[in-house]
Amino acid sequence: MMAELPKEGGQFRTRGGLAGYFRVVWAVADKDVRTELRAKEILGTMAAFSLLAAVIFGLAFDLRVPRTELVAPGILWVIIMFAGVLGLHRSFGSESDLGTLTGLLLAPVERSALYLGKTAANLVYFLIVEALLVPTLLILFDVNLLKPLILAGLLLGTIGYVAVGTLFAALTARNRARETLLPVLLLPVLAPLFISGVGLTAAVLDGRATSEAWPWIGIIALYDIVVFAVAFLFIDLIWEQS
């Protein structure tokens, strides 16, 4: 049945409501993960980089650091930050290269639903890489990062990182120099997240009181809220001329 344009002065029928919105989010995330499981471009690169970086840090600090708890928080967050940049630029970059970004923008869906779908898929990649990285650091540095507050901070921090990273990936998708532009734009914006993540991990590993860890969690959560608010405000603008 042909879609019919409304008569003069008529209104469009908006389909689906909130459920329809989240069906689009799910469709985009599902498509991205399905494509990535076949291509293994993002996951393969991020996982290989993370494990190699962990080994190199292990070799670099093995003989000189008296307590590995002193360096482990920094190592964890530095590896996640740089591994993330490697994966994020492919998020919209591959769509731009294939021309499919135009296909997405032609669809009658909210731009923010496309953004959220991409963010969800990126979150899956990050969590898979972190699930490999944390045990690797346990083996190499003999540091147990499997503690509830560290894992909560890692999850919240990853959500914030992926949210801001996906937004910047959308911003740079059509730029030929996106591979260098993305980290230059992204890393300064990640500074509060990085400082809070390291602060939280160090507080827990040092065995300090839980009350010292919670403010860091609060900062990370606040960062996440601000990032999503900014993303929802600007995502239409970013794609207006795409």
């Binding site: 469009f12 908006t14 498509k31 494509t35 294939l98 021309g99 499919t100 135009t102 009658p108 909210e110």
Partner: peptide
Amino acid sequence: HEIRRYVGVVAHAPLLYDRL
């Protein structure tokens, strides 16, 4: 965005995911 439901575009690039 609902207006896009009333337009179909065959672009120069096929707008298809080659891995799917």
